[in-house]
Design a protein around this nucleic acid. Structure first.
Length: 408
DNA sequence: TCTGGGGTCCTAGGACCC
DNA sequence: TCTGGGGTCCTAGGACCC
């Protein structure tokens, strides 16, 4: 029985995943700069990355950087299918697989060395099998901790394997840029650079007190632990979600109450349905309104009791959006609306409504309508039935396949 | 001339309670 | 005479991740 200090963690990360699948499906795309997406780059092939194209970049900028870039994609079902195939391979080596996104997972292979040899050999064997069975390039990092395994897989990219031997952790981390630390994004990186901290070695040397004064107590101490390699998180099954949300980009639309009502109705309907499918109810509703120039505001409200009723949640969302808009009368156009449900409770645990009173009866009726709609949709599909403004709403411009993928 | 959708966590101020 | 401290919940905003 290995102690936690002896655990061996493997981080596996599919390279340029969506783009790699597209190049497999259409061999004429191999070796070419391609991007998956349209308005925004969801994934870029390594050939495109050589031009500076990166995920999250607006499509027009990608075209400016790389005029020959080809935009392809939309094979969402294929992405999911192949990613599942890869995870099946992982399970042949260990039952302890923590999937953290469609193209990434942690594996605890501490107990697998007796069967498959040293950690490096396991990493190599997994990479080989994934390549043979799916055609996809996979990068793997191996180390004693999750954080270090993840850093190692980033160093291994593209299509490589990096093993950090026990005892070599600090030396491995020291020269690497701070941006490789999990949780260091552009804002934190800028602040660290301004303090003369460029490498993870310098980050570790800075120490917790300085980092806490720079970045706040929680972020500072967490970063100090990661840089000093004393983080010991285990590989676990993912926890249940703490919030469920949906958003819709609208282009540039003049502020219009009816548009807001329809869009929020549509979004809340989707989100509430997903929540009911996982048998939960929400106490907090949050609405985000984004204006031009990426200026955005959020308004939230916590209900006296949890609800899973589409109508109740929609009314709350619409009211919150009204407040947000009223607080910003100078804004003439909105570009995005988002709804999020949080403070989630298991529905079975809810206090049953008292069987009398008009309000209780109304709630019971809403509950019944939602269940009926859910059941019909399960049988006949989303478009079969719904509230009128939702059914006829024209905001569903993003491919449904992508939504389902994102929801997975 | 600012681009998708789905999430997590942290901070900070205010209300309220003891 | 408004002085002390601690805890919880709510709200708004922001950073970050895939």
């Amino acid at each position: 029985m290995a102690s936690s200090g002896d655990s061996t963690i493997l981080h596996a990360d599919l390279d340029a995943f969506y783009a790699s699948v597209e190049q497999l499906l259409d061999p004429s795309l191999r070796g070419l700069p391609i991007a998956v997406g349209g308005g925004v780059v969801l994934a870029a092939s390594y050939e495109a990355r050589a031009y500076g194209v990166a995920a999250g970049m607006p499509g027009w900028r990608a075209r400016a950087l790389c005029p020959d870039i080809r935009f392809v994609g939309g094979h969402f079902g294929e992405y999911q299918r192949r990613a599942d195939q890869v995870v099946d391979v992982f399970h042949d080596f260990t039952p302890r697989v923590e999937r953290i996104s469609i193209d990434e997972a942690f594996l605890d292979v501490s107990g697998a060395v007796h069967l498959f040899g040293p950690p490096g050999a396991i990493g190599a064997a997994i990479r080989r099998r994934v390549r043979e069975e799916t055609g996809l390039p996979l990068s793997v990092g191996v180390a004693r901790t999750k954080h270090l395994a993840k850093v190692a897989s980033q160093v291994a990219k593209p299509d490589g394997l990096v093993v950090v031997e026990p005892g070599g952790e600090r030396a491995f981390l020291a020269p690497l840029p701070v941006g490789l630390v999990w949780g260091v994004g552009p804002a934190t990186q800028l602040r660290l650079h301004q303090s003369g901290i460029q490498t993870i070695g310098q980050l570790a040397a800075a120490g917790s007190p300085l980092l806490e004064s720079l970045l706040g107590p929680a972020n500072g101490s967490k970063l100090a632990r990661l840089a000093a390699d004393v983080d010991r998180r285990r590989v676990d099954a993912p926890e249940r979600a703490r919030s469920i949300g949906a958003q819709a980009a609208l282009g540039r639309r003049r502020v219009d109450r009816e548009l807001v009502r329809e869009t929020l109705g549509y979004l809340t309907d989707r989100v509430a349905g997903r929540m009911r499918a996982s048998r939960r109810a929400a106490r907090t509703v949050t609405v985000r309104v984004r204006f031009t120039g990426l200026r955005s505001v959020t308004r939230g409200a916590t209900l006296a009791r949890p609800s899973s009723a589409t109508l109740t949640l929609t009314e709350t969302a619409v009211e919150l959006a009204g407040r947000a808009l009223a607080d910003h009368p100078a804004e003439r156009e909105i570009t995005l609306l988002a709804v999020s449900l949080s403070n989630l409770r298991d529905e079975e645990c809810l206090q049953p409504e008292l069987p009398w009173g008009r309000q209780a009866r109304a709630q019971a009726a809403r509950w019944g309508v939602d269940r009926t709609v859910d059941a019909i949709r399960t049988k006949f599909g989303r478009g079969a039935v719904g509230y009128a403004t939702v059914v006829f709403s024209g905001v569903d411009r993003v491919p449904e396949g992508f939504r389902e993928l994102a929801e997975h």
